[in-house]
């Protein structure tokens, strides 16, 4: 168990859980109770409807539109900001671990976004900015891991999988070729088939299925 980077950062997840609707006090006045409970039901329905609408809208939004963009944090130069965003998409948020720093609301991700922008504004190249973060957080901070001996197995996995699959296919083909087909039809069988009005179609001369 660990704390997220910012005070109160942990409560963001909890905020999704709305407190239960308050229905206390209904018994205070029987006459008003009905009207009030109707109102409660109506607001609950309204809330649920709004929630569904929000869900629908969020599903329809393109994913990159969810990227955090506090206007105050953006660089004034659009070209530089674009560079910073592209770079940030390759930097892992160390807290959420499966998001880039551009996609994360966590405090540390914002700090790293700001560092990326400061360094770009100071005239550093993308490689220099990445090297700065890599020196502090290691390979893990890069969503595209660099090729090295320690990551060779990772990079080679697709090639190994393809080779294994190819090997499997070749082995299976070979075994199939070894299995002899049914023996060719004898003259007697041909005659009987002809008598039935069936031509031995679909079978080649050697009796194998074409």
């Amino acid at each position: 168990m660990r704390c997220p980077q910012t005070p109160g950062g942990g409560s963001a997840a909890l905020a999704w859980r709305r407190p239960p609707l308050r229905v206390a006090g209904l018994s205070v006045c029987a006459r008003r109770a009905f009207a009030r409970s109707a109102r409660v039901v109506r607001t609950a329905r309204l809330r649920r409807g709004a929630g569904r609408l929000l869900l629908l809208v969020s599903l329809l939004l393109p994913l990159h539109a969810l990227a955090v963009s506090n206007p105050a944090d953006m660089l004034p130069d659009p070209a530089m900001e674009e560079r910073a965003r592209n770079l940030g998409r390759d930097i892992r948020c160390m807290v959420c671990q499966n998001q880039s720093i551009e996609d994360s609301e966590v405090g540390l991700a914002r700090d790293l976004r700001l560092i990326v922008r400061e360094r770009i504004a100071a005239g550093e190249t993308d490689e220099q900015v990445k090297a700065f973060l890599h020196a502090r957080y290691g390979d893990f901070v890069l969503l595209k891991p660099p090729f090295a001996w320690s990551t060779a197995a990772l990079w080679a996995t697709p090639a190994i999988a393809v080779l294994l699959g190819l090997g499997l296919i070749i082995a299976m083909r070979r075994r199939q070729a070894q299995v002899a087909g049914p023996p060719p039809l004898t003259e007697e069988e041909r005659r009987r088939l002809a008598a039935l009005g069936v031509t031995p179609g679909g079978t080649g001369q050697d009796g194998k299925r074409a």
Binding site: P4, Q5, L108, Y137
Partner: peptide, 14 residues
């Protein structure tokens, strides 16, 4: 500001 922590590679406390 949490900047020195980043220099240490801190990504959460403790």
């Amino acid at each position: 500001p949490g900047r020195v922590a980043i220099d240490w590679g801190v990504y959460g406390v403790p």
